[in-house]
Design a protein around this nucleic acid. Sequence first.
DNA 1: TAGATTGTTAATCGATTAACAATC
DNA 2: TAGATTGTTAATCGATTAACAATC
Lengths: 217, 217
Amino acid sequence: MTSIDKDRIPEGVIERLPLYLSVLIQLRQDGCYTVSSARLGELTDINPAQIRRDLTHFGSFGKRGVGYEIVILVDKIQAILGSDHTHRIIIVGAGNLGSAVASYSGLRARGFVVAAIFDNDPEKIGTRIGEMLVKDMFQMERMVREQEITIGVIAVPPEAAQLVADAMCSAGIRVILNYSASMVRVPEGVMLHNTDPVRELLHTLYYLSRTQNVATV
Amino acid sequence: MTSIDKDRIPEGVIERLPLYLSVLIQLRQDGCYTVSSARLGELTDINPAQIRRDLTHFGSFGKRGVGYEIVILVDKIQAILGSDHTHRIIIVGAGNLGSAVASYSGLRARGFVVAAIFDNDPEKIGTRIGEMLVKDMFQMERMVREQEITIGVIAVPPEAAQLVADAMCSAGIRVILNYSASMVRVPEGVMLHNTDPVRELLHTLYYLSRTQNVATV
DNA sequence: TAGATTGTTAATCGATTAACAATC
DNA sequence: TAGATTGTTAATCGATTAACAATC
């Protein structure tokens, strides 16, 4: 009835774009030039019609009879997501989890650079993770403000998670990826991803106990 | 039209159950006894009507005019998911990522026990992660078979991920949680979760660049 | 009893998919 | 031209939500 939110994109579409991107980048590495929606569908377990429809929300990037040129599609999706330029992120927590995130090879490959890692443990401050010095937590707010960093990763024990989240929010962080075992709350306007790995295991457990076949995710 | 898959449960429902469970366990810890769907809705950012509807797929667990008794609901959801008993899992990869997963406090709390950690690096084999000895990768298959372990976590560098996945599948692992930066393929019947943290960052990036308000996830 | 909240129906909404004309 | 595959419409499907009677 209204014509206003004509170009609102369904959340599901946005969730699938990064998946397409992963596969496309892999294909590009493998030396492919074009890919059809049918092939993309195989690789992602997503219906080819859906892939085509998802993409048309943003334009028409393919050639009929041919398929999609991979480098073009990569560029387009990156532009849509805003990953066509580098994003600086901070990590709070220099334990195993923080170290794992910091050295995660997928970060750099997709345009994320770790600007700093913070901890409040005197034993960790000053040590190195890869080539990066662990900084004192009290420097976090200033650095986020000064360098206008918008993305923060929480990699601390559950007791400390909410405190860290609060500090991040007041410093101006706009996206938080929370890896701690505890759920945190953030003010309106801050985007929060509670990525609790166990939650996924539990989800899968349901299907395991029923011995059903399920699409891989 | 058909009456056969009358009690098929939508995937979305199963995905939300672990979230309800997390919140309920937290509430129980805080000393609460009952909770209404309205309150659960606030805590999870899910519509109360949806919560009630989700639960009725499995029975009616609440009291009208009162709400849900937390301990009962926790039990019920755990029974539905199959997390009412302990599950043994293995981890392959004893680096930072594997160590982080192994020492993740949320595992034990929700019924998962790390049965073993494997690596193929001689420098790591024999060392300890927490109280657990890192075992040689070549022992993995036998142990999985003998102890009938069904859940495996991949925490190795991307180059090794597919090899590890193959080994797990042939050993009889039925659920794989892949934390490596590379996508793996598994045979039909094995449930795979590619949990690529960067993919979530990319997804969120879209909303960041648009400065839209989005429900937290 | 009055107030609250569930369980459940029915309506809405939106996403997925099949199908096919357009076109490379 | 013939074959392939996109872009797009229209149909289907399923999930979300509002509303309310049941009942604690």
